[in-house]
Amino acid sequence: MAEKIILLVEDNPDDEALTVRALKKHHITSKIVVARDGAEALDYLFGAGAHAGRDTSRMPVLIFLDLQLPGINGIEVLKRIRGNHRTKFIPVVILTGSAEDRHVAESYRVGVNSFIQKPAEFKAFAEAVWQIGHYWLMINRPAPAAGS
């Protein structure tokens, strides 16, 4: 079976390193692809821009998405993901510093699978990341791949 891919959309390099660390620490061995902003995330998913020519039949099994991103924000990225038949069913977990009620409400309206506010304490943060990874990769059964 091909290696599973996790797409991490995160503009803060520290949070990126900590998220990757938390996943590796708990032996989640999937390939982690990092996108630094919304445009890069969409380029990766749809094989455009810097990621032109990517084998787009291999989609991530899980997307971690930050809300505050430079350029195209998290909500907009989520809208595009949900709006395309190839990415419509990929589990998307929002992992963000801000958890204002309107952001949470908007995220669910657009179709997020889960909304996590990053805990300030690393231990709690690592635990949250691991639990999400574990759930979506090991426990949850994903939708059959589009086109197959």
């Binding site: 520290d14 949070d15 660390r21 510093g97 958890a99 805990p119 300030a120 304490e121 690393f122 690592a126």
Partner: peptide
């Protein structure tokens, strides 16, 4: 909220 982000880094990398 913005004050939380650097804290996570300090705590996380100290732990690391």
């Amino acid at each position: 909220h913005d004050l939380r982000a650097p804290l996570r880094s300090i705590d996380g990398f100290s732990q690391a």
